[in-house]
């Protein structure tokens, strides 16, 4: 029997709320940024203290070539473009473009890990000095952040492949992108504070 009640539309969608994964990721990003603020702050304070006393910050014989760091910076910036592309493509339901963009982001992230580890082989810096300890701690922690960001992006890629995210819901990808942008921002600070100013 087709009554008016039987043909009623489903209940209205609940009002939009802040999204749980996005909020949680934003909080995790805030915490991660604070961890790096602490680490880089200690690095700069120690470096300033040594230089203020007329000492040399980097141990004698240490080479800290700028090129791998700058290549890494450029690669990170490119990865920022590709992850933005991925989010945009999913929003428009251009799935092939989204897969390509996410794949490129992961490839760029792996390339930065490669350039940083290559830099380690070039700089001839022992961990047993205060400068070495702090540089390895800061850059090593950032490598860990890149790995975490890549895992996050990869998981979201697989979820997108599985059809979980689409034009009207791309929360997971936006969350992964947010974390990745923070990774890029931290690298930019490291690039300037450590690789450029030395």
């Amino acid at each position: 029997m087709a009554t008016s009640a039987a043909l009623a539309l489903p209940p209205a969608a609940p009002p939009a709320r802040p999204r749980v994964l996005l909020v949680g990721t934003a909080l995790a990003v805030a915490g991660t940024l604070m961890a790096f603020a602490g680490l880089i702050g200690v690095y700069l304070a120690q470096r300033h203290a040594v230089l203020a006393q007329g000492g040399e910050w980097l141990p004698e014989g240490t080479k800290l070539p700028l090129t791998p760091g700058t290549i890494g910076m450029a690669t990170m910036l490119l990865s920022g473009v590709t992850i933005w592309w991925a989010v945009d493509a999913v929003g428009r339901n251009f799935r092939q473009s989204a897969y390509l963009a996410l794949g490129l982001t992961i490839m760029f992230g792996l390339a930065v890990i490669n350039s940083t580890t290559f830099l380690y082989t070039q700089m001839d810096l022992a961990v047993g000095s205060k400068a070495g300890l702090l540089i390895y701690a800061v850059t090593g922690a950032h490598l860990a952040m890149i790995v975490a960001g890549l895992v996050f992006a990869a998981v979201m890629t697989f979820r997108t492949l599985g059809g979980e995210y689409h034009g009207r819901d791309r929360e997971g990808l936006v969350a992964a992108a947010l974390f990745w942008y923070a990774t890029i921002a931290v690298y930019a600070v490291i690039w300037y504070a450590i690789y450029v100013t030395k």
Partner: peptide, 25 residues
């Protein structure tokens, strides 16, 4: 969330220092 990560960063530094750098800091 805004303060304890600073402690965690310090702990990372402590571990690398004690485990690999000879406890110089």
């Amino acid at each position: 969330i805004l303060t304890l990560p600073v402690l965690f960063g310090l702990i990372v530094l402590m571990y690398i220092d004690h485990r690999h750098a000879g406890s110089i800091y």
